[in-house]
Design a binder for these strands. Sequence first.
DNA 1: CGTTAGCTTGAATACCTTCAAAGTAGGTGG
DNA 2: CCACCTACTTTGAAGGTATTCAAGCTAACG
Lengths: 278, 278
Amino acid sequence: MLTTHANELSALSPQNLRPAGVPQRYGKLWSSLKEVCDLLRIPVQLAADEHQFQHVQFKTGQRIHTIGQPFDALYIVNSGFLKTVMIDDFGNEQVLSFPMKGDLFGIDGIHSKQYTTETVALTSCDVILLPFRTLSLLSRTHSELEVALYGVMSRELVREQTMAGALGSLGAEARIARFLVQLAQRFTDMGYSGTQFNLRMTRQEIGSYLGLTLETVSRTFSAFNTMGLVSVDQRAIVIHDLKALSTLRRLAPAQHRVKAKKALAEARSSDTPPSLAA
Amino acid sequence: MLTTHANELSALSPQNLRPAGVPQRYGKLWSSLKEVCDLLRIPVQLAADEHQFQHVQFKTGQRIHTIGQPFDALYIVNSGFLKTVMIDDFGNEQVLSFPMKGDLFGIDGIHSKQYTTETVALTSCDVILLPFRTLSLLSRTHSELEVALYGVMSRELVREQTMAGALGSLGAEARIARFLVQLAQRFTDMGYSGTQFNLRMTRQEIGSYLGLTLETVSRTFSAFNTMGLVSVDQRAIVIHDLKALSTLRRLAPAQHRVKAKKALAEARSSDTPPSLAA
DNA sequence: CGTTAGCTTGAATACCTTCAAAGTAGGTGG
DNA sequence: CCACCTACTTTGAAGGTATTCAAGCTAACG
């Protein structure tokens, strides 16, 4: 008798038997509002704030929130790597993002009062809990917090739009090059090497994120390797030519080219947006 | 010699209302906060609100805002049809959405203080201006407005995530079927026929939105026509089999299938997310 | 040291794009 | 009013890119 699903399980959540009762108690346990804002990279002048936000630790494979679970909090990654996924119309898992230090997630839950995605730890993680009610209350006294939150949500929207644009217009090589460049950037921002790092996700997860199959991801890595752009050995990546990766745009499935004359004509004929009044 | 969209337009903004002496000033000029919330489909209990928001009219081809323009307002569509586009790394236009009645746009500008997209009228449009400063001020006195705004932004994010998911996982036929189904739904919501309508956008724009070429869009419409799912004649659409369109999922470029047993096992064994405290 | 998940690579095929050409519709000026 | 122009649409044929299926390989974990 094959223990098929036990096998598969072990990969995603190897040690998910958490002793009931007390969550793991190592690492930092509380952060102030100021620390939270710094983590989110939003410049906020704050008056004295007493409020402390709770940290929670998760181990590889554990879920921070699940689909359908009632929404009550946003989360910020303090350390570690995660993935957020959607389940599409027939049970297929779609990776939507790979949250890492400083990223906010759980936003999707606000609208429908329950999460539409689930977020899973790809490594051990330290996550800060931001109860939504608390945020609402705080933003009443700290009005700059409100605008900052709009800003973060706006940033996420732009990120998602850019992603949709890339999926629609770039070929496999360009998508993967972009992925590597962005990853390198994030590692740099976090103070790690931007030229040498380990992937925390599988080829399958990368493929799902980029709208490709795992084989295409693997082949493209190999191709980049052969071209000397990067060295790839399993999860270990060394970036040799960031510039080449950044400019690698094999003009996509070509498609929509904007005709210059058309753009010009419209620019001439269209009114300037009206001045605003309230 | 009425054009097709002039016909439909007449229902939306009757042009026979012409206040004497004021040129170009037909249509409704101001809306209250309550009316704005109704349009956005957010249930908000509001105390007396004096504030009135300005309407602005645009003609086909005019831009509501442009890329790089300083951000100072969000917009709601009161009537008409638009497209929002991004320009990708080499000048190609990417359609991101087709805002129509009740849709909020301009959100992308909040983060970087200037718009990263531009929005263009595909028909004559009536748009309500929501100066961002005004919203901030109002949400200080109407705290439920703040949460409502978060909700709308969250809804947009989910929409964009779902779009990215579809682009990554569905084949051309499935994407176009989804597109038609969603359009039909929107028309129904607006009180128009959901089975018979005119497209306001070109094949090129649809293709850009769905990550396909205009030829593929055209061919797929023709194929649906031949199959009897819809009748397509240029921009005129009649939907014959909505159910078939809704369930048309030619299992995509297949890729990542989540084994049902795996999902189940994980669901059972994984920890429930920790209880929240603040 | 065996088992298993994950990774690599090959070969065949399907799907979508590309290039090309002809048809349709609406608007403009003669 | 008609002819023409332009933009949009349709359809065909060829080719390329990514998927699919399959098999062997690697590395980690117990």
